[in-house]
Write a protein that binds this DNA or RNA. Structure first.
Lengths: 148, 148
DNA sequence: GTACGTGCAAACTATTTGCCTATTT
DNA sequence: AAATAGGCAAATAGTTTGCACGTAC
């Protein structure tokens, strides 16, 4: 969802008990704006392109702090060697991944909502996000496999 | 499921068009025996302990080859800095993860089976596995958050 | 015999850390 | 002013690769 109205990064940071800095706001705004899984380097490069220049280590530290407070989630993304981060409640991006050729299909719907509500009650967790990857072989790679 | 009867690693490798070697058989057997998410290093150390000694690079190469053929799947596991591998069709290990303290609860049931069948039809994929992580804050960490 | 797999060490890449300065509260 | 965050460079850790030798088929 690209056009999501800009979030109040400062408020989010305050709530989390973190100091509000230019760097952290920029990182949070970018993540919410894109609603994609981004790596530390993705973020670093995109912000640099926009003229917001600062160290890569800062990006890593910010992401770690936000993840620990449940504002972001982290997951391995096939096709990227890096860990990727995404805003916990605003990005349910599920993927169907071909392990043969690496093709990725992004799925819109999420079958898990009810299940998550059940888990919250059972374990007294406050669930902030989830990550779901489905692996398989695409039509093309299924054919190849037969020939081997 | 620990007691799963030993699989025929050689047959699996042949089917996949890979040569059958001592190393590959040992790796496959371990993964199926444990039915857990194991990192390359986990595998390397465990096999070394059992007297099966060989290079860590071999483990990485074997895992990559098996993943590409859909026999194994890979996913990032919270609490481990490494990528972890698991037998695609035999290990539905879902997790509820506290992002505050890192505690992990392993979940038994899988809400996704029907959904997966639907996807197979829609996208003509042969689905070989999936990975599902749920993030949140455990009761303890929810309390702490309020105080900050 | 040939193609493919392995071992070792070196190379790479992603991520973390130390230390000192800058900024927020 | 105190506490926390940022920048830079060095350190670490995970993973990949080149090359010579070994093994499966």
């Amino acid at each position: 969802m690209k056009g999501m109205s800009k979030i109040d990064a400062a408020a989010l940071l305050k709530e989390a008990g973190l100091k509000v800095t230019r760097q952290r706001q920029a990182i949070l705004e970018l993540l919410y704006e894109q609603a994609l899984h981004l790596s530390a380097e993705d973020i670093y490069l995109e912000l640099k392109k926009r003229g917001e220049e600062f160290g890569l280590a800062t990006v890593y530290r910010t992401l770690a702090a936000l993840e620990q407070r449940g504002i972001l989630n982290k997951s391995e993304q096939p096709g990227s060697a890096s860990q990727c981060y995404f805003p916990a409640p605003h990005c349910h991006q599920h993927q169907l991944i071909c392990t043969g050729c690496g093709k990725i299909i992004y799925l819109e719907d999420c079958p898990a909502e009810n299940y998550l509500r059940t888990l919250e009650e059972t374990y007294h967790f406050q669930i902030t996000g989830h990550s779901f990857q489905i692996y398989g072989l695409c039509p093309g790679c299924r054919k190849e496999e037969r020939h081997v």
